[in-house]
Design a protein around this nucleic acid. Structure first.
Lengths: 214, 214
DNA sequence: CCGTTTTGTGAACACCGTCCACAATGCCAC
DNA sequence: GTGGCATTGTGGACGGTGTTCACAAAACGG
């Protein structure tokens, strides 16, 4: 009878071991299924095999737990973006490669929103201001946050002469807005329910617009 | 003593009169203050001076009430957009005027998000798919939904030769995405807390990108 | 005028976040 | 070791929520 119940492995000791991590993981699972509203404190503790109040030893309140989940979700977005960026072949000129990488950033972002809408909404629909956009808690495995990844690629475009240096400041806001807007409209806005090819078409046109408009 | 209590005017009759409208109005007020999560069924009935269950005679459940609030909020967005569009002077050529109106659409949208973030989030963050983007329940006083307004202005740009007709289909998705993305980032994304001038700067640059990229 | 349909009420249930007092545990100084 | 102390978990409670069920009051229609 070491661990008989279905959910969490019934711990033998009174102490849990790493309850904070367990709650975070449970919160991520909940968010994956139903977005930020679905990360319910009591349910997270239930999955961790612990009483509801135990959560308050590791998070000030539900909002704090949700914020931690949001940060972790942003890290997952960063990972997905990093993967799509790394997958582009740098065969052509450095400039063309940099342009490809910019498109990959956008595609990765939108693809994540499509495949993990709950986590995506948890990541970007939860209070957190600009001053923390570069906070390490939001970073992926390579230590970069989604915002930093975008900035890196934009810097490449400047370095290869594709973008004039004086236009560089603030460019991440423009690129981000366009891609983020499409993502939101696709997952729970007026564009929801569009078929995958339709979304892919809209995405490519949008990336054209960004590339031309930057 | 016609209406003595602070909140809703204590009705004299057993029947309310127009409870559905009263609940919708209360719901809009709640959304204005705290977004979709703030539209709480019990509080709405409280403000209407009625028992909680009375709401179920007019809305299937909380989600139905929220959907109605969302539709009404979209109507308010349409009104705001219409106002900014009507305020542009058509002094220059028809083509230049049409371009100005496109920018006005975007500016009005973002301004609404800035000044009424709660209503904005209630309008566009609540489940409802593309098939209902032209539903009259989401229309403003002139009978046009936000999406229809954008489409009208894009049609003008085609008519004045600013946009090639074959590029027209689906353009609303591009323009909408960019503007919507900036709005979301400004009200509860990484761009929150930016000063008004900074937001205005980002907005104009974004509209430049859209104009150039369409 | 009486029956039927509509609209509101009251009590109840399950669930949530959160606070309080208390128990079990691990740790560290003596 | 052993006793004290800070940490971490438990149990019970409170007020709030959405929702359901049975019932009452009003309006309507023959």
């Amino acid at each position: 009878m070491t661990s008989e119940d279905g959910g969490a492995p019934a711990r033998a000791t009174y102490r849990h071991g790493d309850l904070r991590a367990a709650l975070l993981e449970a919160g991520l699972d909940l968010a994956r299924g139903g977005g930020p509203d679905a990360v319910v404190l009591r349910e997270a503790t239930r999955r961790a095999g612990v009483s509801p109040n135990a959560a308050y030893r590791h998070f000030a309140d539900r909002a704090a737990l949700l914020a931690a989940v949001s940060d972790a979700a942003q890290g997952l977005v960063a990972d997905a973006m990093r993967d799509t960026v790394d997958a582009v072949d740098g065969g052509d000129s450095p400039a063309a490669a940099a342009r490809k990488r910019l498109r990959a950033i956008g595609s990765g972002y939108i693809a994540f929103a499509q495949h993990e809408p709950g986590l995506f909404r948890a990541a970007f629909t939860v209070p957190s201001d600009m001053s923390k956009a570069y906070d390490p808690s939001k970073a992926g495995r390579d230590g970069q946050t989604p915002f930093e990844l975008l900035g890196t690629v934009l810097d490449e475009l400047v370095a290869t002469g594709e973008i004039a240096a004086e236009r560089r400041p603030g460019l991440e806001f423009l690129a981000w807005s366009a891609v983020h807007g499409l993502a939101m409209l696709v997952i729970d806005g007026p564009l929801r329910g569009l078929t995958d090819p339709m979304i892919a078409g809209a995405r490519e046109r949008l990336l054209d617009m960004v590339e031309r408009g930057l």
